[in-house]
Simulated scan of single mutants.
Amino acid sequence: MKLKICGMKHLDNILEVGALLPDYMGFIFWEKSARYFDGTIPELIKTIKKTGVFVDETVENIMSKIDKYHLQTVQLHGKESVAFCQELKAKIDGRIDINTEIIKVFSVDESFDFSVLEPYEKVCHYFLFDTKGKLPGGNGTTFNWKILENYKSEKPLFLSGGIGIEEIPMIKDLKIPIYAIDVNSKFEIEPGLKNTSLLKKFQKKLKPATLNPKQLYNEL
């Protein structure tokens, strides 16, 4: 299960969190967010995928941010249509110098209709489910994960929405495969500033260290 740490903002904190080697690091390019990012992204380990989070942005502006920050992933957190995703994907696919993947976000509540996902299958690489609330994201609450039992797509799934250390047992009890966990506000000292000690604790509980054969023998 991969880990995405989103809402990064401060240079030193980005480096501290980067040292934890998350799989994805998210930068929010929605100006209304308290975690809006307009700074400089330092050099990170290549295994960390820099992810730009956008809300109903234009294709041109997204492409501009991809070029400026060398984004490996784009997260669409608004009401982007299938046609919009298709246009963006075509722009990305038409470039030989980038290989950026697309995550399409869906805000979920008890009445979510999973059939809306089908038209997006061919125009994005991942789906992300977040809690439906007043804001496009960052509402800091979980939704009823039981409805994920209705998820039939083979697209890799990101799970988001108010996830903290307390949610780990429930994550491990889920009956469907989760590709990545997306965390943000539950690990903040203030908006955009992450508590690295708490993140490290979460990471350890989420991803127990893999034992090599010798260690496994000693354990037995």
Rank of each mutant, 00 (worst) to 15 (best):
P177I: 00
D93A: 06
L211H: 09
Y24N: 09
P42W: 11
D109L: 09
E60P: 09
P191H: 01
I96R: 09
D23L: 13
L157G: 10
K9F: 11
A83T: 07
L193K: 15
T196Y: 06
A209P: 09
K49A: 14
E118L: 13
K89I: 03
I45Q: 14
N144C: 08
I165L: 14
M170T: 14
F27M: 00
I98T: 07
L199M: 10
T196I: 08
K50V: 07
S107N: 11
K91W: 09
K79W: 05
L20Q: 07
K194Y: 13
T100Q: 00
K79S: 12
L159S: 07
K68V: 01
N195Y: 01
K204A: 14
G162E: 06
G94K: 04
N61G: 03
G138N: 00
P119L: 03
F29D: 04
A209N: 07
I62R: 08
L193Y: 11
F158E: 10
G138A: 03
K134D: 12
K2Y: 15
K172M: 06
T58I: 05
F106V: 07
H10E: 14
H70Y: 08
K152G: 11
F143M: 08
V53T: 05
I165P: 05
K207T: 11
I92T: 00
G138F: 03
K89F: 04
F127W: 15
S197A: 10
Y179D: 08
D23S: 14
E121C: 06
